[in-house]
Amino acid sequence: MTSASDIVLSIVNDILNVARLEAQKVTLINRTFDLLELFEDTIEKFGKRAGAKNIELIVNCEVDMLPRYVKGDPERLKQVLSHLLSNAVKFTDKGKIVLTISMQLQEVIDEDKDNQTYGQIVKKGRLLIEIYDTGIG
């Protein structure tokens, strides 16, 4: 019952998000959150689904290379990661799913005037999430 209600809630949220996108009413939140916790929770959820289908979910991630806390929109990141993993699990009947997470760091001059580090060199990065699966897609 709980699983079915989670699925229905997810579908309703997806429909609402599409409507917001089409109306250009998507608001991104920029806050600090625990990146590793977000990954762990999301991957665990889909790891169980993959296991139920006897599909191997392999995660390639150098945890030491990722920052623990980042600034961004955790709900959108979780949504994107969930959609990628959901499609991989849904369309893979045998074999494996490989999730690779990496961070490409670079030093830049902080141009956020509201930030205490304005004008200083700070490390910023790009998060790279790659999914490979043996499914039909």
Score class of each variant (00 low, 15 high):
134 T>R: 09
17 N>H: 12
123 K>G: 00
133 D>A: 06
81 L>C: 04
4 A>N: 15
126 R>W: 14
90 K>M: 11
92 T>D: 00
74 P>S: 08
5 S>D: 12
109 I>R: 12
111 E>F: 07
1 M>F: 00
73 D>R: 04
21 L>S: 13
67 P>Q: 06
100 T>I: 07
120 Q>F: 07
99 L>S: 03
30 N>A: 07
91 F>G: 07
107 E>K: 14
19 A>M: 05
125 G>Q: 05
133 D>N: 15
29 I>W: 00
77 L>F: 06
36 L>E: 03
91 F>R: 04
3 S>F: 11
53 K>D: 01
12 V>P: 03
96 K>M: 12
114 D>F: 02
99 L>V: 02
24 Q>V: 04
126 R>G: 07
51 G>C: 02
96 K>T: 04
37 E>S: 09
134 T>Y: 10
123 K>N: 13
88 A>G: 09
73 D>N: 11
85 L>W: 01
15 I>T: 12
102 S>Q: 12
75 E>I: 00
18 V>L: 15
74 P>M: 02
124 K>C: 03
33 F>V: 01
27 T>K: 09
4 A>Q: 11
11 I>C: 14
92 T>F: 01
3 S>P: 09
77 L>E: 02
136 I>H: 08
25 K>G: 10
108 V>F: 09
95 G>I: 06
11 I>A: 13
64 D>R: 11
85 L>N: 03
108 V>I: 15
35 L>K: 03
1 M>H: 14
31 R>M: 09
119 G>P: 05
5 S>F: 10
2 T>G: 12
85 L>E: 00
124 K>H: 04
83 H>R: 10
76 R>E: 13
